[in-house]
Amino acid sequence: MASILLAGGGTAGHVNPLLATATELRTRGHVVAAVGTAEGLEKDLVPRAGVPLHTVPKVPLPRRPSGDLLRLPRNLRAAVAAASAAMTDSGAAAVVGFGGYVSTPAYLAARRAKLPIVVHEANARPGLANRLGARMTDRVAVTFPGTPLRGATVTGLPLRREIADLATVLADAEAGPEARAAARAVAGWASDAPTLLVTGGSLGAASVNAAVVAAVPDLVARGVHVWHLTGQGKGEDALRAQAELPERVRGLYRVEEYSHDMATALAAAGAVICRAGAATVSEVTALGIPAMYVPLPHGNGEQADNARPAAGAGAATIVADQDLTADAVRDGAERMLLDSHAAEAMRAATDAIAIRDGAARVADMVEAALDQDATAGSSS
């Protein structure tokens, strides 16, 4: 067994797959530690998961001339030194990077120490740190096919334990229907209720909320049950629309600003309308749920790239943010939930492309790198 140092932070998109991989490596008897910054989500999430966290200075890579660019060499040296110290303190035999600012110094320190490097890229469009890291190793894991990193192997995303466990349950012919029925019962709905889950993430998505609110009267009139997570502080319009529904169908529209139990909401869902972050697409697909993805309209377009494999396989549709209207919501929901032929085809497509064991696949890659390094060491 070996000590593995995991690098990643800044956002949940980096931290959650890191923690999922840490859990898998621990079940195999390895010792794990992590490097992160003192500012990102990792400062809370990693210690809470029982993983020791070594902090390194945050070193953004400036994209234009600035004072930060002049200070970059000095700052990067300090971050690499901190990452090197973390490797020494943890006795690391390999480094696994998940992207974010902290991965760059970790990759550079690992190369200097001649430790095996494994890179995992969550998004279809890789970030700067992982583009650098992929040049230092032949062990590159990606979530989506077509991700432009040399020699990449598609492993899927290491899923959060509660989502991985739920995916296993829902895929079971007997346990799956029981779990869906129990989740729908939480909302007071029948076990066979055609259920649409709408979420724009914890902060919500104004355009998604507006289109769904406008479509809700038609949807509930057709018997569609809508579980709408509006985002914190963004539930007013949805609650007003709920109050204006006829009393006989008002119970078909459940409005919450935020869910502390996303596993239940996802288990209840027969279809989802949501954004297309890498984790969202991976989790929805792993759970076998047909989806309408509405990628963020700004940024570098990576969310549309994330959703494209699922859409290409027939497991989902993509609707541009500017094209998301009440009609688009209504038509998409009815196709995914009320058209039995289309719904079954989409569910079958999700099953064909779902990767539910991403953490195990990445852990396999780490162990292969360790074995290769040990073989090379014994022959030298």
Rank of each mutant, 00 (worst) to 15 (best):
Ile117Gln: 07
Pro177Asn: 12
Ala33Phe: 02
Pro17Glu: 13
Glu42Thr: 05
Val366Leu: 03
Ala20Tyr: 08
Met136Trp: 08
Ile353Trp: 08
Thr23Ala: 15
Thr199Leu: 11
Val213Asn: 04
Asp373His: 14
Ser84Cys: 00
Val140Ala: 10
Leu166Cys: 07
Arg161Ile: 02
Ala352Lys: 15
Gly146Arg: 09
Ala171Ile: 08
Asp331Leu: 07
Val80Phe: 02
Gly127Pro: 09
Leu239Ile: 01
Gln322Trp: 07
Asp371Leu: 14
Thr264Arg: 11
Leu203Met: 15
Ser380Tyr: 03
Thr143Tyr: 00
Met87Pro: 09
Ala363Gln: 12
Ala83Gln: 10
Ala179Asn: 06
Asp305His: 10
Val366Gly: 14
Thr155Lys: 12
Asp192Val: 02
Ala81Ser: 06
Leu53Ser: 07
Ala7Thr: 03
Ala22Arg: 13
Val118Trp: 07
Pro309Lys: 11
Leu166Gln: 03
Leu166Ala: 05
Ala173Leu: 00
Ala348Gly: 11
Leu53Thr: 09
Gly277Ile: 05
Ala205Gly: 01
Thr55Met: 13
Ala313His: 06
Leu203His: 14
Met336Trp: 06
Pro148Thr: 09
Ala279Leu: 15
Ala113Thr: 01
Val281Pro: 07
Val51Glu: 11
Ala94Leu: 12
Ala276Phe: 09
Val154Lys: 11
Ala363Cys: 15
Thr155Glu: 04
Ala193Val: 03
Gln242Pro: 00
Val220Asn: 13
Pro62Cys: 09
Asp68Tyr: 01
Arg250Met: 01
Gly314Glu: 11
Asp89Phe: 02
Ile289Phe: 05
Ala348Ser: 08
Asn16Val: 14
Thr375Met: 02
Ala93Val: 05
Ala141Asn: 05
Val294Pro: 04
Trp189Thr: 11
Ala263Met: 02
Arg48Trp: 04
Ala343Gln: 12
Gly377Arg: 15
Asn16Leu: 10
Pro73Trp: 11
Pro62His: 10
Ala141Met: 10
Asp172Lys: 05
Ala110Met: 00
Leu159Trp: 04
Glu178Ser: 12
Asn130Trp: 07
Ser378Glu: 11
Gly277Asp: 02
Thr325Leu: 06
Ala342Phe: 04
Ala79Phe: 03
Thr317Val: 11
Gly99Ala: 10
Ser66Asn: 09
Val46Gln: 04
Ala279Gln: 15
Thr104Asn: 03
Met262Val: 02
Val169Cys: 06
Val366Gln: 09
Arg48Gly: 04
Leu115Lys: 06
Pro217Cys: 13
Ala20Glu: 10
Arg248Leu: 04
Ile289Trp: 08
His120Gly: 00
Arg248Cys: 05
Asp373Ala: 15
Ala193Ser: 14
Pro60Thr: 12
Leu6Phe: 13
Thr168Pro: 01
Ala241Glu: 12
Leu19Cys: 03
Asp371Thr: 15
Ala134Phe: 01
